[in-house]
Amino acid sequence: MATQSNLAHQDDPKPGRRDFLYIAAGAVGAVGVAGVTWPLINQLNPDASVLALASIEFDLSGIEVGQSVTIKWRGLPVFVRNRTPEEIAEAKAVPMSDLKDPATDEQRTKPGHEQWLIMIANCTHLGCIPVGDSGDYNGWACPCHGSQFDTAGRIRKGPAPTNLVLPPYEFISDTLVKIG
């Protein structure tokens, strides 16, 4: 009997109750499989202990003019540079048309604290750390693939697509900055 009804069903070109049940059961199964798979993939994402380091405070008072330090924020190296007046003037003198990723020096710093340049130290190409006080633009030069950045950390030459990334930060006082 069962065989006969199955055969009859196959001959029938119209979608019937059984087709609906197949599709509905398959859809429910697919949702179930996806639901079980997601946690198995999601465990790869940054965990709570990594996310807990989301913001840090940093004291700038020990950094002399012309000095640069590298600190760590969320596992990433961050440049904090106390720029000299010449470096600031040099950055401001660059016409926007010379820039691959146009941004003014004001956009790269906080008003009233323009001597402080705070940026994520990884080159925007493939993540190496550029070397300071070097390159054709007196800024940073990446040893890996030859990208060069100016005194405002803007890309000037080489394969990097964008300027060095600015982390979210604010000045709590003149010498204390909160990153993140």
Binding site: L44, N45, D47, V50, G75, N122, H125, L126, G127
Partner: peptide, 25 residues
């Protein structure tokens, strides 16, 4: 450097990168 290669993928690059590394670096 090599994981950063995946970061070049438009839009999904950064989420994929963080998924692969399990962190921001």
């Amino acid at each position: 450097v090599i994981t950063n290669i995946l970061g070049a993928i438009p839009v999904l690059g950064t989420p994929i990168l963080e998924l692969l590394r399990g962190g921001f670096a």
